[in-house]
Simulated scan of single mutants.
Amino acid sequence: MKNVNLASKRFKELRESSNLTQVQIANFLNIDQSYVSKFEKGERKLSVDILEKICNLFGCTLKYFEIEDEKYTPMSIAFRSNTLQNEDLEIISAINKVALNIRFINLMLEEVIIEK
C-alpha cells in the first residue's frame, strides 16, 4: 500500500460513518483492536487480505484506499437493529461482495456496448 495515510483516513471515515467501533471491526477481521487503532493512526499497515475483507464490508474497491480521486458509492442497506454482531457483519460483507461483483460486470458490459 503506497499511501498509508489515505488508506487510514478513509478506513476511519467508513468505520465511523457506519457507526462501528474499533472492537467490532477488529472482531470481524479477527485481529486485535490495538491493530485497528494503529492502522487508523497510520502507524501500521494492513495486509491485502484484510483490506479486501474491509472492502467487502463497506462495499468499496481497493482503489478507494490507494487513489485520492477514486470515488466511493456506498451500498444501500437498511438495518432494524441498533447493535450489529460479528455474524451480521459477515453477512453484510458477503452481500456487498456479490453487489461489487455485479457492479463490476455491469461496467464491463457497458464498455463492450460502447465499443460496438
Rank of each mutant, 00 (worst) to 15 (best):
T83E: 08
D88S: 03
V48D: 13
A26M: 08
S47D: 11
A78K: 07
F104R: 13
S37M: 12
S81C: 09
I91K: 05
V48Y: 13
V112E: 15
E70H: 05
A26P: 13
L62F: 06
E52D: 14
L100C: 12
V48S: 12
R44L: 02
V48E: 14
N106E: 07
L29Y: 04
K38Q: 14
V36Q: 12
S18A: 12
L107G: 02
N5T: 04
E40S: 09
D88K: 01
K38R: 15
K53Q: 14
I113C: 08
Q24N: 02
N3G: 05
I114P: 00
D32S: 11
N96Y: 04
N27G: 07
K63E: 14
E110S: 12
Y35C: 10
V23N: 05
Q24M: 02
V4P: 06
I92E: 00
F39T: 06
T61N: 11
V23I: 09
I67R: 05
K53C: 09
S93K: 04
E87I: 01
P74N: 12
L84Y: 07
S81V: 09
I105L: 15
I54S: 02
T73D: 04
F65W: 03
E111W: 07
F28P: 10
K53R: 15
I105H: 10
N96I: 02
I54D: 01
E68M: 06
Q22Y: 05
G42K: 05
S34R: 08
S93W: 02
V36K: 11
F65A: 00
C55M: 09
F28M: 10
F104N: 13
S81H: 09
R44E: 04
L51Q: 08
M108H: 09
D88T: 01
K97C: 06
I77G: 00
A26Y: 06
A94H: 04
L100V: 09
S8D: 03
I67F: 05
N27D: 13
C55V: 07
A99E: 00
K63W: 03
K97M: 09
I113N: 11
M1F: 02
L100N: 13
N56F: 05
E115I: 07
G42P: 10
S81Y: 08
R80D: 01
I113R: 14
R44Y: 10
L100K: 12
V23D: 07
L51Y: 07
N19D: 11
K116D: 15
K71D: 10
R10V: 01
L62C: 07
E16L: 15
F65Y: 05
F11H: 03
L14N: 04
F11Y: 13
N56I: 00
I114H: 05
N30R: 14
F104H: 13
L107Y: 06
I31V: 15
T21W: 00
E13P: 00
P74K: 13
F65P: 05
K38S: 12
E40Q: 08
E87A: 01
F39M: 09
K45T: 15
I54K: 02
N101K: 14
V112G: 06
E16G: 01
K2C: 01
T61V: 01
N101Q: 14
E90I: 15
V23A: 09
K41Q: 11
L84R: 13
N106F: 04
V48Q: 13
I102S: 08
C60M: 03
K45Y: 10
S37P: 07
S8I: 04
Q33M: 06
D69C: 08
S8R: 03
